[in-house]
Every structure is written in structure tokens, then in C-alpha cells.
Computed example of a mutant assay.
Amino acid sequence: MRSTNLWTLVTLTLCLWNVGTGCTWMERQKGSRSMFQVFNNKTISMLQHMGRRVEGDRSSGFSGDGLPNFLSKQHNQALHLKAEDKLVFIWHALNGIERLFSSGSSNATRWAQRDVDELMNYLFRQNTQVHQCLKAMRPTSNAVNKKMKLHFRLMKKSLKNQGYSASAWEEVRRVVLAHLLRLDVLAARIFKA
């Protein structure tokens, strides 16, 4: 409980500290990664680490990148959007991922609670900072991609129907990992140094 409170305090402090910085979260300096990419890589590493604690790995119905086929197509289409619309796409994906991981108990998994808390803090930080960028950029389109929204709703329902089992969480972890890997590519194309 103390670690959760500490991480929440650290995250909120950092978020409030960066409120006036506009969209520097997504910008890259020459030869380096953006803060989004740094945190996204930490989130990816955390999910990969958590995956080592679950046995069995099935991947039917998925494209080569681990995403359901229709979502892989959506990520490919997002690569050709304007910067503001790419940012909206990233925010909706992060928001769906954060809601998914906060939807129920992961006690059935072998994941350490500290790892889950850290993952949630990374997701919260990314989601908050991307939302700050959206406020600074004021994109014209804020339409939620209906297929993506339905995708996260179905994943949440599947988790619930499977009683938040370890295998259900593993499936969620693998799909979220694929999402984050694709979001990293998309973020790299928003602001080129």
C-alpha cells in the first residue's frame, strides 16, 4: 500500500511539474528518444518481465505483430495520419490500456503487486502527458475509433467472463505489449528531429 501511495505521489508531482511545458513529452532531440518513448519502453520492459511469470503461449487469430488482425490494419492506417490525429490515436489506445489494467484483480497471476503498481504508474504518466499534448495542440478531430473502443470493451468483457484468470491476463498482456510496440513506432513519426 505504501509503494502505491509513493508512486502516485511521484507521478502526480511530475505531472504537475510538467503542466506548462506544452508537448515536449513527444518531441525528440537529435539522436535521442522522446520522453514518451522512454516511458513506453519502460512499460514494454515491464510487460515483458511480467510475461515470464506465465506459462504457455498461444497466438491464434493474431497477425505477425501480436495484434488482432483488424487492429494491426488500424495501426498501419494511423501511420499516415496528421501529427495531431496520430496523437489522438495514441491517447485513445493508452486510455483503453490503462482502463483495461485497472478493470479487475490480477491476483490470479504470478505478477508481483509492485510490478502491477509500477506498470499502472507508467501507463498513467503516459496517458496524462499525451493528454497534455492534446490540450496544447488542440486537434480538430477527437473521434474515437469505434473498432478500437470495441476491442478494449471486448477484452475487458473477456477478462471478466474468464474470472480474471492468469491465462486471460496473459492474453491481455500480450495484446497490450503489441499495442505499445506499435505505438512506439507511431510516436517516433509525430515529431521528427
Rank of each mutant, 00 (worst) to 15 (best):
A112P: 08
N40S: 15
L79E: 07
T8V: 00
Q113C: 06
L81H: 05
L154S: 10
S103M: 05
N5Y: 12
S72V: 04
G64A: 13
H75D: 06
D85N: 15
G104C: 01
G96I: 02
T128F: 11
K157D: 12
E27W: 05
F191R: 05
S72M: 08
H92I: 08
E55L: 06
F89W: 08
N127D: 06
L154A: 07
L16E: 15
N5F: 14
D184G: 09
V185S: 06
G22T: 09
T128V: 12
F101Y: 11
E98H: 15
K30A: 14
N145R: 11
E27V: 05
N95Y: 12
K135Y: 09
N41V: 02
N40P: 01
D85W: 02
Q113E: 15
M148D: 02
R153V: 03
E55M: 13
M120D: 07
S32V: 07
A166H: 04
V175N: 02
W91A: 07
S102A: 12
K149Y: 12
M120K: 14
A112L: 13
N107A: 13
L79K: 09
Q29N: 09
N107G: 08
I190L: 11
Q48W: 03
R138A: 14
N142K: 15
C133D: 04
S63Y: 03
L150C: 14
G31N: 14
S106M: 12
L181K: 14
P139L: 01
R114C: 10
L180I: 07
K147T: 07
K192E: 08
R99Y: 09
S45I: 00
T24M: 04
R114Q: 15
N107S: 11
R52N: 15
K149I: 05
D85H: 10
G61Q: 01
T140W: 06
F39Q: 01
V144Q: 10
C133K: 01
R2Q: 13
K149E: 15
D65M: 03
F124A: 15
D184H: 11
L94S: 01
W17L: 14
K30H: 12
N41P: 00
S165W: 02
Q74R: 11
K86W: 00
A93F: 02
F62Y: 15
N76H: 13
L14Y: 07
R2V: 15
L123A: 08
A78M: 03
P139R: 03
L183V: 07
G22V: 08
N107T: 13
F191Q: 04
L150A: 15
N95H: 14
S105C: 12
V116H: 05
Q74K: 14
K73G: 06
F89C: 05
R99Q: 15
E170S: 12
H80Y: 09
L6N: 15
H131M: 10
R58S: 06
S167M: 07
F70S: 13
R52C: 08
L119I: 00
L159C: 09
S105V: 08
N41K: 04
A166G: 07
G20K: 06
T43V: 08
S106P: 03
C133V: 01
D115R: 04
S105I: 07
E27S: 06
M50W: 04
A143N: 14
S106Y: 06
W7V: 05
E27I: 03
G22A: 12
V176D: 01
N145A: 10
E171W: 06
S158H: 10
A112N: 11
W111L: 09
K156E: 10
K160P: 00
L87D: 01
M46W: 02
L6W: 09
G96H: 03
V176N: 00
V176E: 00
S3W: 07
Y164M: 07
